[in-house]
């Protein structure tokens, strides 16, 4: 049962703390700090914050092509005619699209799955945007499918599930390379990462 964050606080303040406490990574203390910060904000700034939350909830939708978060469908990336429409990169979350876009190294399209297969948590193919991916692949002229799921057990299982489903199709399926992070050190790398790095070594 949830405990009252501050028993003696005004109900409105207690409610705000309770709601902030539900955000990821926000504990009761942080929720209190944020709530008091909001109270001290000038009224227009607090209203701006409230409006931004409200607008996000009403305006943000999923792009009907790539399933990424967008205000208009198709999204900016899908609607951009300069992108390479023969490459499709499959990612787990909308944040992964932002990370890949920051690299400026990829000019193809995306497909967001909104998670990865996690049988232990009851997340199967039907809970992800996998069916939409297969539909998209059957309708579009995609030549290369880049599976960029996370290098975790769940991410790898998702990649294997997709590639198993698409086996036998005229489609090049690739995975992101696994290996050492920039700034990392060989000495402290785990055996799996090192062996993956060795397997994926490149000629200089």
């Amino acid at each position: 049962m949830a405990t009252d964050p501050i028993p003696s606080a005004a109900p409105a303040l207690a409610k705000l703390i309770q709601e902030l406490n539900k955000l990821p990574g926000i504990g009761p203390k942080s929720a209190q700090r944020l709530a008091f910060h909001i109270i001290r904000l000038p009224a227009p700034e607090a209203e701006e914050l409230s409006r931004a939350i409200s607008i996000v909830k009403t305006n943000i939708t999923l792009c009907d092509q790539c399933q990424n978060l967008t205000e208009a469908t198709p999204c900016n990336i899908c609607a951009n005619t300069n992108r390479n429409v023969t490459q499709l990169c499959v990612v787990e979350d909308p944040m992964d699209v932002l990370a890949l876009e920051r690299t400026h190294s990829y000019q193809g399209l995306y497909h967001v799955l909104h998670g990865s297969l996690s049988p232990l948590n009851g997340i199967g193919p039907d809970q992800l945007k996998i069916r939409e991916l297969f539909q998209r692949l059957s309708n579009a002229n995609i030549e290369e499918l880049i599976i960029a799921t996370n290098p975790t057990l769940e991410g790898e299982a998702t990649a294997m599930y997709i590639s198993r489903h698409l086996s036998g199709q005229q489609l090049k399926i690739t995975f992101l390379a696994r290996g050492l992070p920039v700034g990392g050190s060989l000495e402290y790398s785990d055996d799996i990462t090192l062996s993956r790095a060795l397997q994926g070594r490149q000629e200089m």
Partner: peptide, 12 residues
């Protein structure tokens, strides 16, 4: 990704 523990805690 630079954590030296990152690869040790995959399920199974």
């Amino acid at each position: 990704s630079t954590s030296r523990m990152v690869g040790h805690f995959e399920p199974l």
